[in-house]
Design a protein around this nucleic acid. Sequence first.
RNA 1: GGCCCGUUCGUCUAGCGGUUAGGACUCCGGCCUCUCACGCCGGCAACAGGGGUUCGAGUCCCCUACGGGUCACCA
Length: 464
Amino acid sequence: MITTRFAPSPTGYLHIGGLRTALYSYLWARKNSGRFLLRIEDTDLKRNSKEAAQAIEDAFKWVGLSHDDEIVYQSQRFDLYKKYVQKLLDEDKAYYCYMSKDELDELRAQQQARKERPRYDGRYRDYKGEIPNDVKPVVRIKAPQSGTISFVDGIKGEVSFQAEDILDDFIIARADGTPTYNFVVAIDDALMGMTDVIRGDDHLSNTPKQIVVYKALGFEIPKFYHVPMILNPNGKKLSKRDGAMDVMEYQKMGYLPEALLNFLIRLGWSHGDQEIFSFQEMLSLFDPSNINKSASAYNGEKLLWLNAHYIKNASYERLTKELKHFDLDIEDHDKQEILVDALRDRAKTLVEFADMAKAILDTPESYDEKAVKKFIKEDSFEILLKYIAFIKVSEKPLRLPSDFEQITKEFMAKYNLKMKNLAQPLRISLVGSAVSPSVYDVLSILGVDEIVARIETFIHKQKD
RNA sequence: GGCCCGUUCGUCUAGCGGUUAGGACUCCGGCCUCUCACGCCGGCAACAGGGGUUCGAGUCCCCUACGGGUCACCA
């Protein structure tokens, strides 16, 4: 069985880079009927934040990812880690190091001055001398001092390191007794039964250290997949300004979660030429082995395009429900579907959608001056007045856009008018702007009484 | 700086030794049209550079350049 996990440190909100690796892990587990676990890496008590863990859960909920089992908090497993520290101590695979922080800093400074790689010199590795009693010791693991550490990464292929290039006896427990990251990650991944670790590229160089821990503890090493970073549009590190903000900000900006997910899965992964993936398709088609090797740049325009696509194809119920988050309630509007259909092809976000809907539903407070100047001619008022008189006495019920199209054509035929004589003046008087959905749709949505009222108001205000 | 990873249109990518190097976003034309969008049709645009290997290289190997990651008692 495949088991994957998402293991963020709770230092802030969940951003799209994290969401993407979470998505990949989720998909791979679910696709294989496996398990997807969530673990909060809060070993550093100084940098803990409960809100952050909650924020991750909220974001998961919004996009529809679910995890199995209870969330694992590393801060609650210190006793467990201590046992493993002790085990290594007992087996002489780890040892106490009494070097003070100052001494260590000094050593590092010297090494750097000599242009050497900063590393612990192993002075307490097999120390038999006097133990300084004024220093609380850290625990260091005995890492191999030579040889090759290699593994086959599911994305990068074979990766190998020389022990002497990268390793030293790194700290597994701090002076205050708390364990460190590379130690607990390996333990938890092993204990939680991880078969496939899918995580950010930035962990690639941690992997050999973790392998040292796996081996020392006799754990089975999982398969690793190191997914490349997401860069900003200029190819630099992604910042908030570029889109690395809280995933929940995307909700506020009017994005549908399926658009975000579709965007993210396609950033660094592909299935031939396919661009649109339903959740079901993601599940059936995703495979980490065709994740790209190289970093990809964030492209907000493509996200927008995808969002527009999902808005176009969303159900009435769905859009009506989502729109409520944007101060627009059309639940009980009798022309709900006509309104939605009139706008769904034009809105790239739900924010735009709501704004455009309000522009139709709300009586215009003003009229675009340029539009008035350009389209309202000498005879426009007269035409508009004739128009409302004409529709008021209609014998047929006027309800659908097609009803209005028909009667409008009859009207134009009777007075020998062209659409361009009528459409823009009508539009301006109804919504205050030269831009809107089809006038037939607008007419239908408003209904005869409102049409009459708005036209009269318009003429009245313009004549002042 | 050491180590590791990477490099196909501006961007996301397809390609897994033989292709007029394909698709998508953006942009630019055109069509549709009551405006704006949508949609449809068309267009611009790429194998980082240099050496090999091979009958043949975007695809395999090496070097260079450039980019990124990492070198903590952070995760």
